[in-house]
């Protein structure tokens, strides 16, 4: 019946282009635009990194702490965050899987676990940010020319500046004109070039806001599942659409992880 109506008037509505529903198609198109936004951010990061290569910090010397552990553990905490996000992507797929089979109990279980995974990720990111903002115990010297130097440990007249050892009169002059800074914010960054901190806050912040809004949307559809909204509607397609968004957030993190922490 519907097919015959469609054949009569192709522009009359009711058609599903490329056999995908309107909502799903629009979600895909939104995600494409979002993917371009994130590639622009990471591209801009690469641009500035090439321009300021000599003053750019090495990420695994900056993010080398792990909660409740002393000492240096480069990469470990971000690896854990990546694991948490991939895990929450798997639980999301399973929620979609049970939704397609109209299995409300399964959706509740896996959607609930996805929300918990998202919250743990947000908590980890807050910890990482706080650590970066507070910085190290020793801090760094910010020279009058904007360069960053560190005391060679155990000395007060030898400094390392962008991988170069400076001693004697040059060092004393630098120290006299320099300002002590600790941690990182949008103006100073004790680990190196301030743009590194700016990009870190901006890119991981923008991604973190995606995770945050994802968690909010997940909670909304979780309540809808509990209230039988999709049971009454006859399908759980909403879970699938939100799932697309959630996987995209995971996908972006995979790239942020590579280009911020690994490369």
């Amino acid at each position: 019946m519907q097919d015959s109506v469609i054949k009569k008037n192709i522009w009359g509505g009711g058609i599903r282009p490329m056999v995908a529903s309107y909502g799903k198609l629009m979600m895909w198109f939104f995600l494409m635009t979002d993917a371009l936004t994130f590639s622009a951010f990471l591209g801009a990061y690469g641009f500035q990194r090439f321009v300021h290569a000599d003053a750019w910090p090495v990420a695994d010397e900056v993010f080398n702490h792990f909660p409740f552990l002393h000492g240096e553990y480069p990469m470990l905490f971000v690896a854990l965050m990546t694991f948490i996000l991939i895990m929450s992507s798997v639980t999301m797929v399973l929620a979609v899987h049970h939704g397609n089979r109209m299995n409300k109990k399964g959706v509740i279980l896996w959607l609930g676990l996805t929300i918990i995974g998202g919250l743990i990720f947000l908590g980890s990111q807050a910890w990482e940010w706080s650590h970066f903002i507070h910085g190290t115990y020793d801090g760094a010297l910010l020279g009058a020319d904007g360069s960053i130097a560190h005391f060679v440990s155990g000395t007060t007249d030898q400094i390392m500046r962008h991988g170069e050892l400076i001693t004697g009169q040059n060092a004393l002059e630098f120290i006299a004109s320099a300002k002590e800074i600790t941690g990182a914010n949008l103006i100073h960054n004790e680990y190196g070039h301030p743009l590194f901190a700016d990009f870190f806050f901006f890119i991981t912040g923008f991604h973190g806001f995606h995770v945050f809004s994802g968690v909010v949307i997940l909670i909304i559809i979780f309540i809808n599942v509990l209230r039988d909204t999709y049971e009454k509607r006859g399908h759980y397609e909403m879970i699938e659409k939100v799932g697309l968004y959630w996987h995209f957030v995971d996908l972006v993190w995979v790239f942020v992880f590579t280009f911020f922490y690994l490369v």
């Binding site: 490329m18 056999v19 995908a20 198609l25 699938e240 799932g243 996987h247 996908l251 995979v254």
Partner: peptide, 20 residues
């Protein structure tokens, strides 16, 4: 490679029509 798996399997793009 990871992006391929996420998009193709988790986001089900591998099961959509070729045109999509």
């Amino acid at each position: 490679i990871k992006a391929y798996y996420i998009v193709s399997i988790f986001m089900h793009l591998g099961h959509e029509t070729k045109s999509l």
